[in-house]
């Protein structure tokens, strides 16, 4: 199904997005989600029908500005309590699998 904007979420597009979102989807998931997402995309396309250029986008429900805190220290969290929750730990650090990529 092609949406009103002409955008589609076919299997290839979903696969590319899944990679960007770091989710290793199975082929079955890719197929299933692609159909569902395309349908959802079609239903949300109507946002393009309203909202002219002169409408200011709203990113916050309340118009607050300049919320800051003073530059002071407060106690940190107990390291052991945090490391206990980690999947793998070595030398008081979080152990993570091999990183491929740049130096």
């Amino acid at each position: 199904m092609t949406s009103e904007t002409g955008n589609t979420l076919d299997v290839a597009a979903v696969a590319r997005l899944a990679e960007l979102a770091r989710i290793s989807l199975s082929d079955e998931e890719l197929q299933r989600y692609s159909g569902q997402l395309d349908q959802i995309l079609h239903s949300v396309d109507k946002v393009g029908e309203v909202a002219a250029d002169d409408v200011v986008p709203m990113s916050h429900p309340q118009p607050l500005v300049n919320v800051t805190r003073p530059d002071v220290n407060k106690p940190c969290v107990d390291r052991e309590e945090v490391l206990r929750q980690a999947p793998a730990v070595e030398d008081d650090r979080f152990r993570v699998p091999q990183i491929l990529g740049e130096e």
Partner: peptide
């Protein structure tokens, strides 16, 4: 056998 990228992807899936 899996890289960090793969482990993240598998975990999230």
């Amino acid at each position: 056998n899996h890289t960090v990228e793969q482990v993240m992807g598998l975990t999230r899936d």
